[in-house]
């Protein structure tokens, strides 16, 4: 998956437009960085990358880049 494709998938999961986020966007700056979005992220990792991430993993994420780095 290219970085652009990852960005698109991530934007869809976070329910934002792709041009609203960049690698250094702080997750806490997103309007809807709530428990439902975090859960969507967990499900997306499972569906798209076969990866089981936990709420502990999410707690450690600070910027969009932290998520992108795990998307492989």
């Amino acid at each position: 998956m290219t970085t652009a494709e990852k960005m698109e998938l991530l934007a869809e999961t976070l329910e934002v437009e792709t041009d609203e986020i960049s690698e250094d966007t702080a997750l806490t700056d997103l309007d809807n960085w709530d428990s439902m979005t975090k859960l969507s992220l967990i499900v997306m990792f499972d569906d798209e990358f076969g990866k089981k991430i936990t709420s502990e993993d999410i707690k450690k994420m600070v910027t969009v880049k932290d998520i992108l780095d795990l998307m492989e």
């Binding site: 428990s35 859960l39 089981k52 936990t54 709420s55």
Partner: peptide, 9 residues
């Protein structure tokens, strides 16, 4: 617990 253990819910 992994998914929602810490939540208010």
């Amino acid at each position: 617990l992994n998914n929602s253990g810490e939540s208010e819910d």
